[in-house]
Computed example of a mutant assay.
Amino acid sequence: MAVREIRVFGDPVLRRVCDTITKIDDGLRQHVTDLLDTVAFDGRAGLASTQIGHNVRAFSLHIDGKVSYILNPELEVFGEPVPTGEGCLSVPDLWFQVQRYPKARVTGIDLNGNKVVIAGEGLLAQALQHECDHLDGKLYIQRLDAAQRKQAMKQIRESAWF
């Protein structure tokens, strides 16, 4: 089991746009194992590559007791955005309302190069959007309005982990 340290707000890797995966090799296979091992704890819904210090388009999910992953996800969203309570492993102990679409789908590949589609609503839709944001170098607090973002930054500065 290879549980990796989760990078937190302030780490520059979290702001990087991830590279498309062009080669599936042993290094990538180990990275996916690390993603799966690190996300497989209660209270963790998803984990993107940047959160464990890598810059490739991959993330893992842990929804309804099922652990999965996807490489090179392309996101589609459906419906009208609604306020959704959200937190992030990379911004511990904060929780804010973020506008998220009620349904989402990602299309990508697995480690064998086979097409993978993950689609859903509720927590799954939220996690798909949240993790794709990470792969684009965005944290959920960047989606907050100015007043909420100011409050979040104050809480971050006052936190024990910052």
Rank of each mutant, 00 (worst) to 15 (best):
A2T: 14
V3T: 13
E5M: 14
R7S: 08
V8G: 03
V8Q: 14
F9V: 09
L14T: 08
R15E: 00
V17E: 13
I21G: 01
T22F: 08
K23F: 12
I24T: 13
D25P: 04
D26Y: 07
L28R: 02
T33C: 11
D34Y: 07
L36C: 14
D37T: 05
T38K: 06
F41G: 11
F41W: 13
G43L: 11
A45V: 06
A45R: 10
G46F: 02
G46I: 04
S49D: 04
Q51D: 07
I52R: 09
H54R: 14
N55V: 07
R57T: 08
H62G: 07
I63Y: 09
D64R: 08
G65N: 05
K66C: 01
K66N: 02
S68F: 01
L71F: 05
L71Y: 04
L71M: 03
V77N: 11
P81T: 14
P81Y: 10
P81E: 15
P83K: 12
T84H: 00
T84N: 06
G87M: 04
C88S: 14
S90M: 07
L94R: 06
W95Q: 12
F96Q: 02
Q97C: 01
V98M: 08
R100I: 06
K103V: 09
A104R: 03
V106F: 10
T107H: 03
I109G: 05
I109H: 05
N114K: 11
K115N: 03
V116W: 00
V116C: 00
G120S: 09
G122L: 08
L123E: 00
L124A: 02
L124F: 02
A125R: 11
A125T: 03
Q126D: 10
A127N: 03
H130G: 08
C132I: 14
D133S: 12
H134Q: 09
H134C: 11
L139K: 05
Y140I: 10
Q142M: 09
D145G: 13
A147D: 14
K150E: 15
A152K: 05
M153F: 10
M153L: 14
Q155G: 11
Q155R: 15
R157N: 10
E158L: 13
S159M: 09
A160L: 02
A160S: 15
W161H: 07
